[in-house]
Design a protein around this nucleic acid. Structure first.
Lengths: 242, 242
DNA sequence: ACTGATTTGTGCGTATGTATC
DNA sequence: TGATACATACGCACAAATCAG
């Protein structure tokens, strides 16, 4: 179940194991976990060791520990539906959650090679890069980088500042309709900044989507990279009845 | 960069960090890594500690260490394209890789709740469950569970034994055309069995897809769960020119 | 309001593993 | 290799919060 001398501390192995059990539904959302002595006995460790694991889980927002009462599963999972025309606020509010967010950064940069290729601009051409943090019920949901070709949208940052929304800014710039041409999904461990913004442990994976949005004529409009806390998010493609 | 007192041994943090750098392209596939003293200096650790990390990476097949020459990146990444009618063998061979695989398990079971719901059969009804391991160039690519309603395909396992392919077995059972209705993507840390089959460290994430395949009339045919080593795989939805 | 049982919170001493020099 | 420093893990004891009677 848990192994010693593997280069990973026992409390960390227990932390992962409990997080998996919770994610797998062994312990339902909101339900009470076994007591600390019980869990310590099950893993064959001291209660201190188990408590260290619980403490980390609490930091991550996976469990909630209450003195004299017990420990409880505190879970929020969000299905992030991706279709051709999904917009963040729709996705969230359709699940009766409250969307939010803020701009972390806006700058003009030379396009990285992969971005330039997909936006069909010369390598190193100027792009606007907007970095945003999206929230659901006040909890961080995704950190995204949005790249726009500067040649096509010279004043995008100014218009964004007026409207406060990427969709609205694009509408005002003449791109009322855009759709997702493709989406690439990968998973990896977060870097320090991502972990910080997502309030995530560095030992829990992030789901990353890279997507290209195109206008009605198929012209590239935006290249986006979004990072989600995998513990709190599933990404769903296709039907929304899944 | 690397942190002490995090419950994870330094050599393991360095192992993860180098694996990430390699996955992110900081060190190109096949290129030479900095020397051990250089890397040890960069991470601020003793060379012994760094060598422990390299040794683990070599075990995982991520790097290749050659005495007197240096250490080299040994990596393979695969884009796993998902469309409505994608078949594993196509995806792989289109990238000039050699597909392969074998059956790990075939059994009749009571359907788990989520599977039953999506297959639209009563909770606990009988399903066939085929567990397969797919390989690319002889390296493990994905471990999958395929669930089929037994009521509709009573002899699926026998037919599969004859044909050796799920697609062919379904064709012979009268489902020549099926397509992917939706796909759910998530990421998590692997369990012991998954890590074993995928030849993956338990500290590297797996990408998991859950998908429902339906026939031409929209009737559920198969519920599939596939697990990929995230270090070696990206999943792409939509256009195949990305 | 009190009591006892249960459960989490905290302190301390000790042994062992990890990493450095 | 041996000495040193520190994180990890254990065992025991007791304090604090909660709840049922």
């Amino acid at each position: 179940m848990i192994e010693r001398e593997r280069g990973v501390a026992l409390w960390r192995q227990i932390e992962e194991r409990l997080a998996e059990d919770i994610a797998a539904g062994v312990y339902a959302s909101g339900s009470r976990l076994p007591t600390e002595p019980e869990l310590a006995a099950r893993f064959g460790v001291n209660r201190h060791t188990l408590r260290r694991a619980m403490s980390e889980l609490e930091k991550r927002g996976v469990v909630r520990v209450e003195q004299g009462r017990g420990s409880f599963v505190q879970e929020h999972v969000l299905d992030y539906f991706v279709g051709r025309r999904t917009r963040f606020s729709e996705i969230v509010s359709r699940q009766n959650r409250r969307p939010g967010g803020r701009l972390l950064r806006a700058a003009e940069e030379a396009a990285p090679a992969a971005v330039a290729r997909d936006l069909k601009i010369p390598a190193g051409a100027a792009v606007h890069r907007l970095t945003t943090l999206s929230e659901v019920d006040g909890r961080p949901m995704t950190v995204s980088d949005h790249y726009f070709p500067k040649a096509r949208f010279p004043d995008l940052i100014g218009v964004y500042a007026d409207t406060g929304s990427i969709t609205k800014a694009l509408t005002r710039l003449g791109v009322g309709n855009y759709e997702r041409k493709w989406t690439r999904v990968l998973a990896r461990m977060p870097d320090a900044e991502e972990a910080e913004h997502l309030k995530l442990s560095r030992n829990r994976p992030v789901l990353v989507t890279e997507a290209l949005n195109v206008d009605a004529e198929g012209g590239p409009v935006e290249y986006g990279i979004s990072r989600f806390a995998a513990d709190r998010t599933q990404i769903v493609f296709g039907s929304e009845t899944g």
